[in-house]
């Protein structure tokens, strides 16, 4: 059984300009112990999908099955158990920590809410701070006394407090400097091998996802266009958008960068208000034909074990 299974999930926002179809029918599975990378450009709906799994945004349709239970219809009062299983870390750790609360209190909060006794809570906080490599005097200090990388460690400690099965990582290293970014990525990988936790790793940075993920899902304008194994996606991308995304990603190797054929994708992401009928990628696609303007392609198995949503693969 999958740890997480999404079936045709929709998220819509009503705005003054119209209805934003942020997530438009996403189906996806994540296995126990797996790291699934979710990549796409800003506005593609990847963060909204992460929040939908946490029930932090209203869900307009579909099923979100966590460990066998569909949480989409559940009310606030019945979500506590799910929140124990699924936790989230954010891009800006400073924005997700209470500046007037000590680090110890912030990390202890999920435990207190879950009804832990003070003694046990104290011991657990001590352990958690040790796991993420923070000094033991950190608990009495405040978030502003820490650097960005250390704050992200605090966020990770808090996410780990109740032994979650899945952690949704929303751009967890995007705000960090290169050397610190590597520290946090390594920490996440260590924790995974230590505790068997799964990650949904949301990022716009393809090289980071390529490093950390087992499988990768590529999102465009609220829908998935390709899902496949990490090596398949990188070596044999099938969908024209995946190909374009990989061609655009800078490579930190000047010779490889010069050697590759580069076709720069033109145009920008269309508005998620009134998305086009047919294929969402048609307006920028180099191989679009008449059919793409009418029929919306669905994810289907293609060569190499991947799934892609394109009529012409």
């Amino acid at each position: 059984m999958s740890l997480l299974a999404l079936h045709d999930v929709h998220v819509r926002f009503n705005t003054a300009a119209g209805i934003v179809h942020a997530v438009n029918g996403v189906s996806l599975e994540l296995a126990v112990g797996e790291t699934l990378g979710l990549v796409g450009e800003s506005g593609c709906g990847k963060s909204t999908l992460g929040k939908a799994i946490m029930k932090l945004v209203p869900i307009a349709g579909g099923e979100i099955v966590v460990d066998g239970v569909d949480i989409a219809p559940l009310g606030r009062d019945r979500l506590a158990e799910m929140r124990r299983k699924v936790q989230m870390i954010f891009q800006d750790p400073y924005g997700s920590l209470n500046p007037r609360s000590t680090v110890g209190r912030s990390v202890a909060q999920p435990l207190v809410i879950a009804g832990w006794k003070p003694d046990a809570t104290n011991r657990r906080v001590e352990t958690l701070l040790g796991w993420v490599g923070l000094p033991s005097d950190a608990r009495q200090r405040y978030p502003h006394e820490f650097s960005g990388g250390q704050r992200q460690r605090i966020g990770i400690a808090r996410a780990l407090a109740l032994n979650p099965k899945l952690i949704i990582c929303d751009e967890p290293v995007s705000a960090l400097d290169v050397s610190v970014r590597a520290q946090v990525i390594n920490l996440l990988e260590d924790l995974k091998s230590q505790f068997g936790v799964s990650y949904l790793f949301i990022s716009h940075d393809l090289s980071v996802v390529e490093h950390i993920a087992d499988r990768v899902a590529v999102m465009y304008l609220g829908t998935l266009v390709e899902v496949g194994g990490r090596d398949q996606i990188w070596r044999h991308p099938q969908h024209p958008y995946t190909k374009a995304l990989l061609a655009a990603a800078p490579i930190a190797d000047p010779k490889a960068a010069r050697a590759r054929q580069r076709s720069v994708l033109q145009g920008e992401l269309p508005s998620p208000i009134d998305p086009p009928a047919g294929c969402p990628f048609q307006s920028r696609c180099p191989i679009a034909q008449d059919r793409c303007r009418l029929d919306r392609p669905v994810l289907r198995p293609v060569a190499g074990g991947a799934q892609a949503a394109c009529h012409f693969i």
């Binding site: 290169v178 050397s179 610190v180 970014r181 590597a182 520290q183 990525i185 390594n186 990988e189 393809l206 090289s207 980071v208 390529e210 490093h211 990188w234 070596r235 990989l246 990603a249 490579i251 930190a252 190797d253 490889a256």
Partner: peptide, 16 residues
């Protein structure tokens, strides 16, 4: 510390 897509996957990034 910078991952290179397509290169052989290192077990860990070299961090500073």
């Amino acid at each position: 510390a910078t991952p290179i897509p397509g290169a052989a996957r290192a077990a860990r990034l070299a961090d500073i």
